[in-house]
Amino acid sequence: MSAPAAAQIEVAGLVKRFAGVAAVADLEFAVAAGEIFGLVGPDGAGKTTVMRMLAGVMPPESGRIVIDGIDVIADPERAKQHLSYMPQRFGLYEDLTVDENIRFYADLFEIPRRLRDERIGPLLAASNMAPFRRRLAGQLSGGMKQKLGLICALIHTPRILLLDEPTTGVDPVSRRDFWRILYSLRESGVTILISTAYLDEAERCTRLALLHQGRLKYCDTPRRLKQLMPGVLLTIASPDARAVRDTIAGLEGVSGVLLVGDGVRAVVDDEARRLPELRRALASAGVPFGAVARTEPTIEDLFVALLRQDEEAA
């Protein structure tokens, strides 16, 4: 696990229990300035709870959180001046217009009016929201709501941005807008912590932390994480994918068998040994199949394989 030198977010020994059950257990990680740090994990993994504690809206049971040099647990109000938090659930006022929401948050952060008006224009333009300034937030589409949330979060130019599943349920176009803004923020030195359920998005992060049942399982750059892939991912093309799946599912050293488009994907622990075995098994069962190709795993493949590996070890 690599800890960056100049950490902008530092978390150590973080614990949070709900009614005795640990939602976050002994969490430790650090994020450097200018990173887009991804927090991924299945529902209930504890992503939201981590975000809330970092944002200073939920006190942890124990542990340490330092953001931009400020001890968040000791002085959450000071930390709030420098960070922005976008909750998973839409947190703006649906009965206020886009403009009214932005002005409300600018006022809460005491942004001088002139500065505010200078900032609103570019933010609206970057998110393609300019035509909707006078629309009630409740009448925006899911994607536009999230972009409005981001604008409100950015109006006080925070140094740290905490985004809890900001693109869940967002259309692809808005998602692209969203990420373009995140990249430009990153260039201007903003540190971003983002949780996401979309693992294709996870690849865009500078580093990733895989959270499972409140514990940090793996934490590294997407590329290096992929090297952790246990075994090799193979794609077997076949006109009768189901038959292929049923034939190879029980074989030794084969796991994670999955139907895909026009074939089957499976992870094998040892390519040199298992590949001939696979071909033999399919041939003797009389199942038709075509090319067998080695496939570059996605983050999703990786996490599914890693979590399965851990379960088997347990």
Partner: peptide, 14 residues
């Protein structure tokens, strides 16, 4: 109820 509190408490408002 409307979920706006979470964002509100994350601002410096007292």
């Amino acid at each position: 109820e409307r979920g706006t509190m979470e964002l509100l408490v994350s601002t410096p408002v007292t």
